[in-house]
Simulated scan of single mutants.
Amino acid sequence: MKFILKIFPWKRTINVSIAVIAVLIVFNFYGLYTNTFYLLKPNNYIFPLLSLSHITFLYVLWFKIKEDELTDPQMRNIEYILYAVFGVYVFKTIESLVILTSYSNFENHIIPASFIPMGILIFVLHLFLLGLTLLAIKYRRDMVGAYVFDDMNQQIDSWE
C-alpha cells in the first residue's frame, strides 16, 4: 500500500482522476461494436452527469487539504453521493468487461479491428478509476479527518 501512496500522492491522485474521468466521458459516447460515436443517445449522458459529483468531491478534497481545514456536513454529503456514483462505476466496469468478452458471440458479423484494443483500454481505465476513487477517499480520511460533528466549533458552515 505504501508503494501506491508513493506513486500517487494526493495531488497526483486528484489530477489523474480528473484526466481519467475526462477520457472515460469521451469513451462513454463510443460504440465498440460499430466504431462510431453516439451523441444523440440519452443513456450516454448519465455517466458524465454523475461524474460531476466526483469532480466536485475532488475539488473539495483539494481545497480542504490545501487550506488545512476539517470536514464539514457538505463534504460528508458529497462523499455519500460519491459512494452511489462508485456503484455506477462498478456497473460500468462490469458492463465493459461483458462487452469485451462478448467478442466470440459475433464471429459471423463484421466487428471493427479496434474492438479488442479499445475494449481493453476502456476496461483498464474503468478499473483505474475505481482504484483512484478509493484512494481519494483514503486521502480524505487520512489528511482531512473523520466526520465528527460533536464539537460546537465544527458546526460552522464553512461554505457561506
Rank of each mutant, 00 (worst) to 15 (best):
Y147E: 11
K92E: 15
N15E: 08
G31R: 10
K11Y: 11
V20P: 05
G31D: 12
V23R: 00
R12S: 15
Y33C: 02
V88N: 04
L130K: 10
Q155R: 12
M1K: 10
E107L: 08
F63L: 09
N28C: 02
F149T: 04
I99V: 07
N28H: 04
L40V: 13
R140M: 12
E95T: 07
N35M: 07
A146S: 13
G87A: 12
I120T: 12
M152D: 11
I21F: 00
V124Q: 00
P117H: 04
F27G: 01
Q155P: 01
K41R: 15
F57K: 07
I14G: 02
Y147C: 05
L40Y: 15
A22F: 11
I116S: 03
K6M: 10
F149K: 04
I55P: 02
V148Q: 09
K138E: 11
L100C: 04
F57R: 06
I137L: 15
R12N: 14
S96M: 02
T93H: 01
K6Q: 15
S17G: 15
E95W: 03
S104K: 13
E67F: 10
S53P: 01
I120F: 08
I110P: 00
Y83L: 13
V124W: 00
I55N: 02
M152C: 02
P9C: 04
R140T: 13
Y30A: 04
G145E: 04
F3Q: 06
N44M: 11
F8I: 03
Y103H: 11
Q155W: 06
M152Q: 12
L61A: 01
I81Y: 06
E79R: 15
L40C: 08
I4V: 15
Y80F: 12
L121G: 00
L5D: 06
W62Y: 11
I122P: 03
I18E: 14
I156R: 08
Y38I: 13
I7R: 05
M1G: 08
E160N: 12
V90L: 15
V144C: 01
L50P: 01
V26R: 00
L58W: 05
K66Y: 02
V148P: 00
Y30R: 07
N35W: 07
N43A: 11
N77Q: 08
L58D: 03
L129C: 01
K2V: 09
I81L: 15
Y89G: 12
Y103N: 09
H54I: 04
L97S: 08
V90N: 07
N28Q: 10
L49P: 00
Y80C: 06
V85C: 07
P42D: 11
V60E: 12
F37I: 09
V20G: 01
N105A: 15
Y33Q: 08
V98M: 04
L61H: 03
F8W: 12
F47Y: 15
